[in-house]
């Protein structure tokens, strides 16, 4: 970290734990609400966190989702141990999914969910080592105007 955060908290996520899938996103949402952040920021982060968490549940063994609060942005890092993504460019293309148009219109079928995270965040970066794991870093600015999307 290049500067000090105002607040940070880590949440473990377990792969294959479908029963509790979404719980971390919900807890983080509660935290962001407690911090009195604008609703638009909470909404976008909740969508991104949910996608990231479900990616871990579906594909990885385990991960840590860390929330860092800075004066002007909220950063989230999801570091997982898992198979990694062989072709990030492919995964980042929207529409690599079998979902129908109608489902997609309602928020489904964005492939691995990475494009959906990118759409809802102001900064986004993904690094992956095949066979080792994937690191997602994304951030939503708390002071900027709502991003279209």
């Amino acid at each position: 970290m290049d500067r000090d955060s105002l607040y940070r908290e880590s949440f473990p996520i377990k792969g294959d734990d479908f029963e509790r899938g979404g719980e971390v996103a919900t807890r983080v949402k509660g935290l962001l609400q407690q911090l009195g952040l604008p609703r638009d920021v909470i909404r976008r982060l909740s969508i991104a966190n949910f996608e990231a968490e479900m990616n871990v549940v579906m594909y990885a063994r385990e991960a840590t989702l860390e929330v860092l609060v800075f004066p002007d942005l909220i950063r989230v890092q999801v570091v997982d141990r898992g198979p990694g993504i062989a072709d990030i460019d492919w995964a980042m293309q929207e529409g690599h999914s079998t979902a129908t148009e109608a489902m997609r219109a309602r928020g489904f079928g964005a492939g691995l969910g990475l494009p959906n995270i990118q759409r809802n965040t102001d900064e986004f970066e993904v690094k992956s080592d095949v066979g080792v794991g994937t690191t997602l870093r994304y951030a939503v600015h708390t002071t900027s105007r709502p991003k279209e999307g």
């Binding site: 919900t26 909740s46 966190n49 996608e51 928020g107 959906n116």
Partner: peptide, 11 residues
């Protein structure tokens, strides 16, 4: 409601 809010609503 959590899932609807996260954009997942089972269609």
């Amino acid at each position: 409601l959590d899932r609807i809010e996260a954009g997942r609503c089972y269609g």
